[in-house]
């Protein structure tokens, strides 16, 4: 992954084989098992797989909506053009101790560093997008790379999957076999019976079949669009690799199986609720929380977003409520 931006990277470590990186005053290094993040006020250690799975989402989502907490200490906050990289900022104990630290960077520059870290620290056979049962061990000394896996493009349909000129449906032939956990999901396509001349408007596709063929987990991808209303369904297995702190209300509709959401306060990390969602359940995630999902069996989740760029300011200024409905 070549980048037009200068990335500060060391030579590979003589023993572990990994490069260390600097961006601003943050420093990143890894060994066989762990990643260490250092900043002027402190340091933090994370398991390498936890760091890489979170980093993969942050890179693929271009810092996503709001806060991407890699864990309870380190993460990023998107300002859509610039991005904050922080340690302890959304951790009550770190803040009270004065150990929190924040830097603001241009998004494309920090993204270049994150991509370089991801590429160097992801070994051959390890796929940070995959469920743990479906990928190799992330640990050990430097052993090759997996550029193909970490550079997947996030699906962003312009109108709807399957429409003319839009994102195609997934098939065995285009490289998307049915996942082992969805072997029983029907693969029939809707019967489209257009009159002559209306072939491009009489369109439908099998969304559940499409999701059963996803080769990634916890990666919401746009499948249908009504103005700024985006349906971003995704397949989920194991643990959402980040604690996502939204800057707007986000909705979840559980399409199949079950996910447990552990919900915490966005600012402090204090526990607020556990939400268990089963097939057909729909719930809002308020704009003042962070959430992390647990899915024992691979499940289908419809993530519904309002993509309007006006919302973060409306929420932050108190002009719009943090919950979508009062009743």
């Amino acid at each position: 992954m070549s980048s037009p931006f200068a990335v500060q990277a060391s030579e590979p470590d003589n023993y572990y084989g990994y490069r260390s990186f600097k961006h601003g005053k943050f420093e990143f290094s890894r060994d066989e098992y762990f990643v260490k993040v250092r900043w002027p006020k402190g340091s933090h250690v994370m398991p390498a797989d936890v760091f890489l799975r979170a980093l993969q989402r942050d890179v693929a989502w271009n810092f996503f909506y709001g806060t991407v907490n890699f864990d309870h200490v380190f993460g990023t906050l998107n300002h859509y053009g610039t991005v904050d990289m922080f340690a302890g900022r959304f951790n009550d104990a770190y803040r009270k101790a004065g150990l929190d630290y924040n830097e603001t960077h241009k998004s494309d520059e920090l993204l270049a560093t994150f991509k370089a870290i991801l590429e160097d620290w992801t070994n051959k056979g390890y796929d940070p997008f995959a469920a743990p049962e479906e990928t190799a061990n992330p640990y050990g000394r430097k052993n090759g790379d997996n550029v193909k896996a970490i550079t997947r493009q996030r699906v962003t349909a312009q109108r709807m999957v399957g429409c003319a000129g839009d994102t195609p449906v997934r098939t065995d032939q285009n490289g998307y076999p049915v996942n082992r956990h969805f072997a029983d999901v029907p693969q029939d396509q809707p019967q489209m019976l257009p009159e002559k001349g209306f072939e491009d408007e009489v369109k439908a596709f099998n969304l559940f079949g499409y999701l059963s063929r996803s080769d990634v987990t916890w990666n919401p991808s746009v499948c249908s669009v009504v103005r700024e209303s985006l349906y971003c369904p995704t397949s989920e297995e194991f643990i959402l690799p980040v604690e996502h702190g939204n800057d707007r209300v986000e909705w979840f509709l559980q399409l199949s199986d079950e996910i447990t959401w552990v919900v915490k306060d966005k600012e402090t990390g204090a526990p607020r609720a556990n939400v268990v969602m089963r097939a057909g359940d729909i719930a809002a995630m308020p704009a003042d929380i962070r959430h992390q999902g647990y899915s024992a069996k691979r499940s289908m989740l419809l993530v519904w977003e309002n993509n309007s760029g006006k919302i973060p300011e409306l929420i932050a200024s108190g002009k719009a409520p943090v919950t979508p409905v009062k009743f």
Partner: peptide, 21 residues
């Protein structure tokens, strides 16, 4: 269908606008 639910620790269940289609 079998609904899930909300176990509140420090919150109001209404904030989640939780229903089942």
């Amino acid at each position: 269908f079998q609904k899930g639910g909300i176990q509140v620790i420090a919150d109001d269940p209404k904030n989640y606008v939780f229903s089942n289609v």
